[in-house]
Simulated scan of single mutants.
Amino acid sequence: MFAPWLTDPLATLGTPERFIAFPENQFAQSALQRINQVESRNRGHGLLTFLHGPAGAGKSHLVRTSLRRILDQAPRSRLLLASAVDLAETLEAADELGTWSDVMATLVGHAVVVCEDVHELPPLGGLQERLSTLWDQLLEDGRQLVVTSRMPAAEIDGLSLRLANRLHGGLTAGIRLPGEEGRNRLIEHFGKLAGVAFDQDATDLAGERLTGSPREIRGAIESLARRIGRRQDQVTAAQLELLWQQPSEVRLLSFEQIVTAVAIEFGLPSTELTSRSRQQALIVPRQVAMSLTRELTGQSLERIGAFYGRTHTTVAHGCERLRDQLKQSPTLRQQVLSLKRRLQRMPQAECG
């Protein structure tokens, strides 16, 4: 059809890691528990849950965890997760091709629809009007709609009155950046994922220094882990302090080096991987390129998304989808591993 998430609604869901609860996200977690009631469908009484918080605060992670919980309980549930821009552009394309009714029927046929990053919609205009129509139909049909944004509705520049009213009429839950307790939990969790253990003093020190979002904390811990290497003993506060005092000599591959190598590997023009094209043949190569860019440069999802002409949510979904595919396809897994090794041997430069 128009996108893999429309023909395969779980294509972008992936397998989320364990959700780490802390005081700043507990209300949002409670707010999303009501979407577990996927069987309730009362015409004209759909539920809208609006989740907002800063970049990297964990909105997407929380949503995917909630959807996965639904699937564990009811495997046949019809769920859909996509960005607001992708949904609106799909409706626009359907309108132009004369398939509006079919696409709308497909979208409204889902018990739960998650519309991410509504703040990234172009100000006013046709895309917002098309998305408004979808929201109205979902709620009229008694569906559950979850909308995410980096900011409250009142702060979204150029948001139409119709969309704003819908958001104000739903249940709003904000996620704030983690406090000291939350940061310490995240540091311990991300350290285990990276193969590094911190003693309590080191955890406390890192919690004082790393005051950003969970995504930024994870990036910092992974960077530390690369410098520390895997070790049996726990990292102490003194060792951590010494690491922070030493300048990092790591130089990064550029985005251009990665996208060019992936394009050559798959026999495609490199410009296609950064274009807005939704051709099926580009999906896996683009996911490989975005995933390797994330892994080999450590740059933010926002910066990677800007390079590939995608939202940070689309980048995250693409990387997760690729991880699932690699588990099922030894051929693709070997191809990506070989490509990664070649990239790591390349002369490196400043990140693009």
Rank of each mutant, 00 (worst) to 15 (best):
L139E: 02
V235I: 15
L134E: 00
D117V: 06
V103Y: 00
L47Y: 09
I20S: 02
E89W: 08
A225Y: 00
R68Y: 07
L268F: 10
E116Y: 01
G125F: 08
I175V: 13
H168L: 10
V147Y: 04
P54V: 05
A164S: 14
L224Q: 03
P178R: 00
G174H: 11
I20W: 00
G109C: 04
S40M: 14
G53L: 00
A263M: 02
S270N: 06
S66Y: 06
S213G: 03
A94G: 09
R150K: 11
V114A: 09
F307A: 12
L210F: 00
G170I: 07
A88R: 07
S77K: 00
G298Q: 10
A31M: 08
N36W: 08
D95T: 13
A57I: 10
Q245V: 08
Y308A: 15
P122G: 02
Q335L: 15
A289F: 03
L163W: 05
L51G: 09
L62F: 04
F307C: 07
G58Q: 04
E116G: 01
A111H: 15
R176T: 12
T236N: 05
V118R: 03
G142R: 04
G46T: 08
F190C: 04
R69N: 06
N42G: 12
G174N: 14
T90S: 11
L273A: 03
T271L: 12
K192E: 12
L87F: 09
R218A: 03
E180S: 10
G44A: 15
I175L: 13
I35D: 05
R176N: 12
R278S: 08
R310N: 12
A237F: 04
Q33G: 11
G318A: 15
N42R: 13
S270A: 12
H110R: 08
D8M: 09
P152N: 06
G126P: 02
L48N: 01
F19T: 09
L131M: 02
L243G: 01
Q137S: 13
P152S: 05
E241L: 11
T297N: 04
G318N: 14
G352N: 11
A105K: 02
E180N: 03
R342W: 06
E129N: 14
L47N: 11
Q128V: 03
Q26A: 15
Q200T: 13
E120T: 13
D201Q: 11
L252T: 13
V108H: 01
T90Y: 04
L121Y: 01
M151V: 15
